[in-house]
Computed example of a mutant assay.
Amino acid sequence: MKKIIVSLVLVASVLTGCKSEKKEKLAVKEVVEFEATTLEKYNVDTEASVLNWKGTKPLGAHDGVVSLKSGSLIIEEDELIDGEFVIDMNSIVNVDMKGSAGAGKIEAHLKSADFFDVATYPTSKFVITDVEESEDGKLDVTGNLTIKDVTKSITIPATISTEGGVTTFESKTFNVNRTDYNVKYKSKSFFDNLKDKFIDDIMEISFVVKTKA
């Protein structure tokens, strides 16, 4: 298949909860080497594009969004050729408590060094290295995901469609283990005696990226 590059800034979650043991961890592998191609820069509509997040812990869940900073999406003959998405980690928003003081606290904590340390790492990145069509006609997209100072190769489910001159790249919800990326705050994998005060290692992510018309 034709190679794709998609960069995303990937985001956050004060992880709230349900039983982490029941969530399927997304397999991570070593970084995949790939040959980048020239991109048409900044054709993504950042106002219409969003990355969604959800995190869990024993007593509940929080969810929210993160805005795109910039991006490109290249389509030829109805096939995705290249792409580059950048998400602004400083734009983390908590949706389920939006407008409350609690939402502000969650957002500030996610941006702090306990979680994504956005002062040091203002963006995250997902560079797609390969795409395969699955049996149901959807895409299995493999790429190098960078969060903070760690890069791992993962594969996520996605679809791509074009209507009215606008191309939409949309993923199903996929799981990422935050501890793979040095986000270890209140993780049972690293700290003992947390009782019910732990935060789930798994964060749920999905995204919708649209081009300008």
Results as ranks from 00 to 15, higher is better:
53 W>L: 04
54 K>P: 00
54 K>T: 04
55 G>Y: 02
55 G>V: 01
55 G>A: 10
55 G>N: 03
56 T>A: 14
58 P>F: 05
58 P>E: 11
58 P>R: 04
59 L>G: 10
59 L>D: 11
59 L>C: 06
60 G>K: 04
61 A>E: 13
63 D>M: 09
63 D>L: 04
63 D>V: 02
64 G>A: 05
64 G>L: 01
65 V>T: 15
66 V>S: 06
66 V>K: 04
66 V>W: 01
67 S>W: 05
67 S>L: 15
67 S>F: 02
68 L>N: 01
69 K>V: 02
69 K>Q: 11
70 S>A: 12
70 S>Y: 05
70 S>E: 14
71 G>L: 02
73 L>T: 06
73 L>E: 01
74 I>Y: 00
74 I>L: 11
74 I>M: 14
75 I>K: 09
75 I>W: 00
75 I>T: 13
76 E>K: 15
76 E>A: 12
76 E>M: 08
76 E>N: 07
77 E>K: 15
77 E>D: 15
78 D>Y: 04
80 L>P: 01
83 G>T: 00
83 G>Y: 03
84 E>Q: 08
84 E>M: 08
85 F>H: 06
86 V>E: 09
86 V>F: 10
86 V>A: 06
86 V>T: 14
87 I>Q: 05
88 D>Y: 13
88 D>H: 05
88 D>C: 03
89 M>A: 07
89 M>T: 04
90 N>E: 12
90 N>T: 05
91 S>G: 13
92 I>L: 09
93 V>P: 01
93 V>C: 06
93 V>Q: 15
93 V>M: 14
95 V>K: 15
96 D>W: 05
97 M>S: 07
98 K>M: 12
99 G>D: 08
99 G>M: 10
100 S>N: 15
101 A>S: 14
101 A>V: 14
101 A>R: 11
101 A>L: 09
102 G>A: 12
102 G>Q: 13
102 G>K: 09
102 G>Y: 08
104 G>M: 11
104 G>A: 07
105 K>M: 11
105 K>W: 07
105 K>L: 13
106 I>Q: 03
107 E>L: 03
107 E>G: 00
110 L>A: 12
112 S>I: 09
112 S>R: 07
113 A>G: 08
113 A>L: 02
113 A>Q: 10
113 A>F: 08
114 D>C: 00
114 D>W: 01
115 F>H: 07
115 F>K: 13
115 F>T: 01
116 F>D: 02
117 D>T: 06
117 D>V: 05
117 D>H: 15
117 D>E: 15
117 D>L: 04
118 V>R: 03
119 A>W: 04
119 A>E: 14
120 T>I: 07
121 Y>P: 01
121 Y>R: 11
122 P>G: 02
122 P>A: 07
123 T>V: 12
124 S>P: 02
124 S>T: 10
125 K>Q: 11
126 F>E: 08
127 V>A: 14
128 I>M: 12
128 I>F: 12
129 T>W: 02
130 D>L: 01
130 D>H: 11
130 D>P: 00
130 D>N: 10
130 D>T: 04
131 V>F: 04
132 E>F: 03
132 E>C: 00
133 E>H: 10
133 E>A: 13
133 E>C: 04
134 S>T: 15
134 S>G: 13
134 S>E: 07
134 S>W: 03
135 E>K: 13
135 E>P: 00
136 D>G: 06
137 G>C: 15
